[in-house]
């Protein structure tokens, strides 16, 4: 039976789903400090699809590739707790300010260094931007085929895969050959939870920077257990053309960011008393808004 090399593209994102009142600073900028950083939800759906293939085809490896600050190593560890085989953190100031295209370029160059890949699986989109662009842009950079909005891997046999896609108004089942880039929809099965044994096994998995920060001497441990080293790649570890990186390599620029000034309407503020609600309903009926 064939084993597969799978890379999951994942992103650590601020949890924009539970934005409280303190999420914005007085000057209108985002207060990132108060938003928890999480594993992008649809990337977890993507990880689950990869792990299912690993369950079915022993010997399959599932590695994470993520780009972000040093802290983003957290999601590589998180994936290891759930059954992943480590991965690579791509981190460098040179990537700062990247739009989706510059991000895709950097990820594409890193992927080229990750050896032979059968499948690249990513979440459809990240909740901090909702663009759904990075998956297809990476595929184009690598000149690979893509299948987006995948909900289920129906069959994988040698190098032929059958996938069910969830579209705006329906479903589609497609069959094609590997290698392939897949983006996974949020309607796909949720990711399995952490496994207690794997948690114990990998809780000390760290990047070099994390080890230096903690200033603890576990040298022996990391020499004996190479699987605990999370590789950290900077711009020097991959082949890049500087003009395609970061802000410089981003065709889109943010011209302005405006605070939304709400044009306050002349609202009727009413209490929940029976009388008030009845009057409101009568007004709406009279104006033919309802009824």
């Amino acid at each position: 039976m064939k084993a597969y090399n799978i890379i999951v593209l994942a992103k650590q994102v601020p949890d924009t789903r539970n934005v409280g009142k303190d999420a914005m600073k007085a000057d209108g900028t985002v207060n990132r400090a108060v938003l928890p950083a999480i594993f992008n939800p649809e990337d977890l759906n993507a990880l689950e699809q990869a792990l299912r293939i690993k369950d079915q085809f022993p010997g399959t490896t599932v590695k994470i590739l993520t780009m972000g600050p040093v802290r983003a190593a957290e999601i590589i560890r998180e994936a290891m707790f759930r059954g992943g085989d480590g991965g690579v953190l791509l981190t460098d100031r040179a990537f700062a300010g990247s739009d989706t295209l510059a991000t895709s370029y950097a990820l594409g160059q890193a992927l080229k260094k990750m050896g032979e890949i059968d499948l690249i699986i990513a979440g459809r989109q990240a909740i901090d931007g909702d663009t759904a662009q990075v998956g297809p842009q990476v595929a184009e950079k690598l000149k690979m085929l893509q299948v987006t909005y995948v909900e289920e891997v129906k069959e994988l046999k040698n190098d032929t895969i059958t996938l069910k896609r969830r579209l705006d108004r329906g479903v589609e089942t497609v069959k094609c050959k590997l290698p392939l880039v897949i983006t996974v929809n949020g309607t796909a099965p949720e990711c399995r939870v952490r496994n207690a044994k794997l948690l114990m096994k990998y809780k000390r998995a760290k990047t070099v920077t994390e080890l230096q920060k903690e200033n603890e001497d576990y040298t022996m441990l990391y020499t004996n257990r190479p699987d605990l080293n999370i590789p950290e790649w900077t711009v020097n570890d991959i082949e890049t053309d500087a003009s395609q990186l970061g802000l410089t390599g981003s065709p889109t620029k943010v011209k302005t960011i405006e605070n939304v000034v709400l044009q306050a309407k002349d609202s009727k503020v009413i209490s929940d008393s029976d009388e008030n609600i009845e009057n409101m309903m009568i007004e709406l009926i009279k104006s033919h808004t309802i009824g």
Partner: peptide, 13 residues
């Protein structure tokens, strides 16, 4: 609208 909710971004190429 962009990240976080209370901002509107104007993007140019």
């Amino acid at each position: 609208p962009a990240f976080g909710g209370n901002i509107i971004a104007t993007i140019i190429n």
